[in-house]
Amino acid sequence: MAQKVLDALAKKFGAAVERTESDGGDEIAWIARDKLVEIATWLRDDPAMAFEQAMFVTAIDLLDLRRPDEYGVLKPVDVDAARFEVCYQLRSLKHRHRLRLKVRVTERDPRVASLTGVWSSMQWQERETFDMYGIRFDGHPDLRRIYLYEEFVGYPLRKDYPKDKRQPLVRRDDLPSPEATKSPKA
C-alpha cells in the first residue's frame, strides 16, 4: 500500500534505514537511533510523505522472544544487542498512507530522542512509554510517570516484571490488634 514510502525512505537515508518490511498492509522500517529526529522531520515535512499525524508510540519488550534467523531457525534474541523496540505509528491523512518506524535500544541504554518537537501529540504518548517500559526520551519537556503513582518502583509492562507483584499505597488499618481484643481474664 505504501511501499513507495519505504522506497523513498531507503533512497533518501540509505544506511540509516536498517531494514524494511511490508506485511499485511503494514509498512515497517527499522531505523538508526541517531537519525530518528531527522527522519521524522523529513517524513512530516516532505510533501510526498506528509505524515501530519503521529498516532502513537509504544515499545516492544523482546525479552526471551524467539525470532527466525535468515535460515528460518528460531533463535533467542540477543538481549544485549537490542531488548526494546520503540515503535512509532504514523499516518498521513492527505495521502492516506501509514508507516511504522521502529528503533532498537538496549536494556543498558534505553534512550531515544524525543519527538515532541516534531509532533507535539507525542508528549503524553512518550510519558506513557516511559511509565510502562522505562524508555528515556531525551529532550522531553516533562518526562514523568503519567498513569502510575510516583511511589511505583519498576516498569510494569516489561516482561521481567512479576505478574502478581503489587505495590499498594494503602491497606486496612482498622483490624484490631490481638492485644486489643484479648479479654482481661484470658
Binding site: Y147, L148, P156, R166, P168, R172
Partner: peptide, 11 residues
Amino acid sequence: NYHATPGADQV
C-alpha cells in the same frame, strides 16, 4: 496484575 487492588476489602 500490577495495578488492581485484589478486592476492596484490602483497603
